[in-house]
Design a protein around this nucleic acid. Structure first.
Length: 203
DNA sequence: CGAATGATCGGCT
DNA sequence: GCCGATCATTCGA
């Protein structure tokens, strides 16, 4: 039976473990009255305060990043390039501004709804491959930021379907689109499932 | 108050 | 494979 991830999963300090273990878990949304779910295939860890790529670098707290300082299990969603929504899983304890970006998922439930939201007619990898795309497919908006996924009646949550991704199938590499972060850009905090067609493009 | 800047995507060449 | 869209947020004046 699918089971929602509990506080003990999110509220650890080892963010790289959480990012790795999120692979194979199932992200679910119940928005606009429609249920959709998809298996997580690709993640990236952002670990403040030392990570220059994180919005909370140096523990810089603003109105936007405030959500990241909450306890693990909240959803941090923001707009990038004026168009794209990004879904992050807040982790660690309260005051630790750690977050994990979900970069790609594999559709499970509500594929027709995803196609409509993306204005597509055929199922192809770009339906949910890439952080902006998967948010659009699952109906996630910036106004959903701050949702507590630990609430049993929240509209966004993550389930464990008992799917294990073998360690040898998990590839770690540098994160995408953060060249400005200098030495942090090389840190191998991107995790994805080897050979999976839903992994987002660059590599 | 104005300007610069992205954790990107998709259409066009 | 490259280029332009597009806007919330942040920072400097």
């Amino acid at each position: 039976m699918p089971q929602r991830l509990r506080a003990s999963f999110y509220q650890r300090s080892e963010i790289e473990e959480i990012a790795r273990e999120l692979l194979g878990k199932v992200l679910c949304t119940h928005l606009d009255g429609v249920l959709t779910s998809a298996m997580i295939i690709e993640t990236e860890a952002y670990q403040a305060p030392d990570d220059k790529a994180s919005h909370a670098y140096g523990n810089k707290k603003t109105k936007r990043t405030e959500v990241m300082f909450r306890s693990g299990g909240h959803a941090y969603i923001y707009l990038c390039y004026g168009i794209h929504h990004m879904m992050n899983v807040v982790s660690g304890g309260k005051g630790e501004a750690h977050a994990i970006l979900i970069r790609a998922v594999q559709p499970v439930v509500g594929i027709q709804t995803m196609l409509q939201r993306r204005q597509m007619t055929r199922v192809e990898p770009r339906l949910t491959s890439g952080p902006g795309s998967l948010c659009q497919a699952m109906g996630i908006k910036t106004t959903d930021t701050g949702i507590n996924m630990l609430d049993s009646n929240s509209s966004i949550w993550i389930e464990d379907h008992g799917i294990e991704i073998a360690a040898k199938q998990i590839i770690a590499g540098p994160r995408i689109g953060i060249d400005y972060a200098e030495e942090c850009a090389a840190w191998p905090w991107r995790y994805f499932v080897d050979q999976n067609p839903w992994v987002s493009k660059p590599r």
